[in-house]
Amino acid sequence: MSDRALPDGGFEGSRPEQSRLTRRVTDGELTSHTVLRTVSEYIETPILDLPPLIDVVDVEFIDETFSGDTSDGQTLSFEYHGCLISVSNDRVQVSDVDGPKR
């Protein structure tokens, strides 16, 4: 499903060409922070300039449910700051709310 799963490598494309961006949850990182890091990169906005994530989703729930060491195939999708976020156990995918054009 993901055409841009980049485990560790840098992302080279510029914003208009992107349709989605996937990032892995790194060791010791809270999954909610991965969400924020990925959104920040996707829309090129510093993390602290993004509106509080807790206003749209239960941050603690995300951190507890998608903690990386469990893999029961759950995913969670929600909208945040004009982006569609999809969280699974070890990765976060961000795309435009309208959905990636195929």
Binding site: G28, L30, S32, H33, L36, P52, I54, D55, V59
Partner: peptide, 20 residues
Amino acid sequence: QRSQSKEGIRISLHHRDLPK
């Protein structure tokens, strides 16, 4: 807990604790 770095704490403060 898990977000003990200064940067991690900063993110948690803005996105979770202070709004709460």
